[in-house]
Simulated scan of single mutants.
Amino acid sequence: MNRESSFDEHMQKKVFWLLQRLTSYSLWVRKRDAWKIFADAYENAVKTWPASQSEQMPADNLPTIYNILSLYNEGLQALRTGDRSVWRSDGALNIAVSQYYGVASFLYPNADYWERGVQQAPYPAKVEALNQLMRASEFHGDAAPLESQRRESAFIGGPGFLLNPRSYQYGFHTLAYPIFPEVLPEIPEAKDVLVRSGQTVPVSGIWEPVHVERDRILGLIPHGSARIESAGCFNYFVNGTAAPKIIGRYIEATERFERVGVHWRLLWEDRRYKDGIVPNESEYFIQPKSPLSQPDEDVGPINAYDVCPISGWWEAVGHSQSSRHISAGELMPDLSVRDAKGEMVSHLVAWRLSRPD
């Protein structure tokens, strides 16, 4: 199958793995456990922070905070048996995430730091400590399986949403970038299951948007076998939800991106936990490795958004005059190149070590 050139095999494997990670029982357990720590710390702050200090946490948040914890427990009990309706609009985990963003928006509604649900300045140290505990329950992209009645197009519009480190950086906080296993799982052969945008998704799993074309007799009547070509990035859908459209080209007249109807083809049916067994999912939470020793020869190529193994000067393959210093443990960058129109465009490149420190 010919997938779009900007979504190469290496990126496909990463997106596929990330979607499995974001919908794993173990990740949602971690969300719940982190929320429990935050809930206890928030209640303690409400009860013990002296009234004389300027920093005060709204006690009105407490009922919602503990309701979210209850929703996590309810949802995890169902997910452990393979019930993914917990991510439907009326499901426990969907409601928990929705209420989470309400708490996050009103965590510290002090006019010096906050306006209309948006943080405007760095929080005071004590408040920021609570904020960090709260954000520990959030994983970038964890809304991937959630049903939304307001969403007009697929949640993941392109691989950069999950793979670009800048996507993990928000106004005043940054979410942890995942560490990938050394060997990523292969992309399975697509199943003979297709649904069109607007139709009901028959099984939970990872789906790929595709264009389906048939040969035409005299250019009018479709006939013969279909040609199927990729139309974009993988997404995770829960059975019973409506297959979405994808984002197309930008329409200057409306100053909006068009929404394009497509077919979605099943890549992988999610049957995890239906037997009541949670397998070892520790690969989803790999800890950073210590920097490698310096090499005796050139290292590379290392793809953009992979972890830099060696501190030194690196050069983008196929791009002269691109040498830059990158430290071990940092993520390899993309490269901005001026196109034919003179505009700077980001390219996902591979890097080769030219001179170690």
Score class of each variant (00 low, 15 high):
Q287H: 02
E255H: 13
G261K: 12
G300I: 03
G248S: 01
Y273T: 06
N303M: 09
D270I: 04
E255W: 03
Q294R: 11
G248W: 00
P288Q: 14
N303K: 11
E252T: 08
Y250K: 01
V278F: 02
I246C: 06
T241V: 14
G300P: 06
Y284G: 05
L266W: 07
E281F: 00
K245D: 09
V278W: 08
F234T: 06
T241S: 15
N303R: 11
V262L: 12
E281N: 05
R272Y: 01
L292M: 11
L267R: 00
S293P: 11
I247V: 09
G276N: 04
F237N: 12
Y284A: 03
P295D: 02
Y236E: 01
A304C: 15
Y305K: 09
H263M: 10
W264Y: 00
E252G: 01
E283F: 15
S282T: 13
R256M: 12
Y284K: 06
K274Q: 14
Q287A: 14
W268I: 01
E269V: 02
H263T: 10
L267A: 00
G276H: 08
H263K: 09
H263W: 12
Y305D: 13
G261P: 09
P279T: 04
R271M: 12
S293H: 09
I277W: 06
Q294S: 12
R256I: 10
P301C: 05
E255K: 12
P244H: 02
S290P: 10
Y273E: 03
A242D: 00
G276E: 05
P291W: 06
P295F: 01
P279W: 07
I247Y: 02
Q287R: 03
P291R: 14
I251K: 14
I251N: 11
I246Y: 00
A253S: 13
P288H: 09
I302T: 06
R259Q: 12
V299D: 00
R249I: 07
Y236K: 08
L266K: 07
P279R: 00
F257R: 07
F237S: 11
G240D: 01
T254N: 08
E297A: 11
V299G: 00
L292A: 15
